[in-house]
Amino acid sequence: MAANTPIVRWGIVATGKISGWFVEDLMLSDWPGKSANHIIECIGSSSLDKCERFAQEYVTQKPKPTLYGSYQEVYGDKEVDCVYIGTPHSFHKQNCLDAIKARKNVLCEKPFTMNSAEAEEVFAAAKAKGVFVMEAVWTRFFPAVKTLQKMLHEEQKIGRIIRMYCDFGLDIDIANLPESSRYKDPALGAGSLLDIGIYSLTWGLLTLAGNVGDKAEDPEVASTQTLSDGVDTSSSVVLKYPSTGRQGICTSTTDFNSGGDSFARIEGSKGYIVVHGTTAASPQRFDFYPKDSDAKVEHFKFEKPGRGFFWEADAVAHDLKAGRLENETMPWAETLRMMMIMDGVRKRSGARFPVDDCRFLEK
């Protein structure tokens, strides 16, 4: 890589599975399109024991990162360029605010916050402090997704886009989980929508809208949810774009593992595309089926040595080097659009979180 290749020194907040996956990916020596270098500067957890076990399992770099028995010490570490937040949903807002208060740049896992009001509060704080903040919707940065978007919206590979469908289902025995489980406790953002439905909705937005952030059209939304003790176990959301008539059906459930090899289908006037992968979060390839039955099916495969978190990390590195406060692939307005859509879905079904206030009820 070039001598001016950006380098990011990361402070990792939380030592759960998602943080482990992120760090494990950054420990790889190379990946397709690699354009930045990454150092795990420090790791923070609720105890040093957790930090030590985490570092032993996921960190292979030398020298080893500094380990802290608190998150606050990560925010205060002067060597840290950007904080990665991998805590449960309900802690994201406060974690972001604490990092921003210390003037740290932030990459926060999805869902960015519990509702749109919390997201607005975080972005206002980031703007006031002049720091970079991005929601870590890693899927949007996959080369497969970037290529697909170009084919759909620039090359018009399938012609006029008509509709799409995406599903993400997991089989989780929620009834037999403890009341404190993040899958069961509304205070922790429980439900299929925020956990996995956000991925189905992401595919709806990126295949139908054509743009992101302030440049994108807001869809009309209809939805229904199946609730168990106030928590959604299944969500179905219909998106419609008034200017084009494009429609999308985005579904999620924790009652059934949709599994299989394909999770999304995008249909157009010249054919359709089927997207393949283990889940909607991790696309691996897609196929184009032309409307002309005599034409050949086209297959598009993409190399992915790890899970794919490194592509969003590279994007952050370039934004920090350029002094940008937002990322063009996942700008603040796109995060707010998603949070508002999910707020509306929950409002229509009666799913509530304790952090929802009068503003949520009035929307």
Results as ranks from 00 to 15, higher is better:
C166P: 02
L227S: 12
K110R: 09
E24T: 11
V8W: 10
K17L: 14
A209L: 01
S47R: 03
L107N: 05
D173Y: 02
S234M: 05
K34H: 11
C51W: 01
Y165T: 13
F132W: 05
D167R: 11
E41A: 10
K240S: 12
C42N: 04
T113D: 12
E267T: 12
T279W: 01
N115S: 10
T113S: 15
V137L: 13
L361F: 13
T87P: 00
H318W: 15
K291Y: 03
L107F: 13
F302H: 02
D218C: 09
A99G: 10
D30H: 14
T202M: 13
V83C: 11
Y272H: 15
G44E: 07
G308V: 08
D261F: 09
G230Y: 09
G11C: 06
L97M: 13
D185Q: 07
G204Q: 07
T5L: 06
T15I: 05
E120A: 09
L336R: 13
G210W: 08
A351W: 05
V133A: 04
D287V: 14
Q149I: 11
A333M: 07
A119E: 01
P354G: 14
G245M: 04
G344F: 07
A2E: 14
Q72V: 11
L97F: 05
S35G: 14
A136I: 03
S46C: 03
L97Y: 06
D195F: 04
A317M: 13
G245R: 01
G189P: 06
E118N: 06
C250E: 10
A119G: 14
V80N: 02
Q94F: 00
I43P: 02
N37T: 14
I172E: 08
L148D: 00
S243C: 06
H318S: 14
G210Q: 09
L201A: 10
H92L: 03
L194D: 04
S228G: 00
K240L: 05
K321T: 07
I158L: 08
W203I: 01
A333K: 12
F141C: 07
F123I: 03
T254Q: 08
S200V: 06
T279I: 01
L320A: 10
S200Q: 07
F360L: 03
L188H: 14
E217F: 07
I172H: 10
T224I: 08
K296H: 04
T15Y: 05
V137P: 01
F263K: 04
A128K: 15
M342S: 03
I266N: 03
N37H: 13
T329P: 08
D229R: 13
A102Q: 15
T15H: 06
S19T: 02
E73I: 01
I198Q: 08
K150C: 11
A209Q: 14
V297W: 11
R337P: 02
K184F: 10
S90V: 09
I43K: 03
I273H: 02
R285G: 00
Y71V: 02
T244Y: 05
G308W: 12
K62T: 15
P143W: 08
S47M: 05
E120Y: 00
A14H: 02
Q61L: 09
Y199R: 02
A190I: 08
A3C: 09
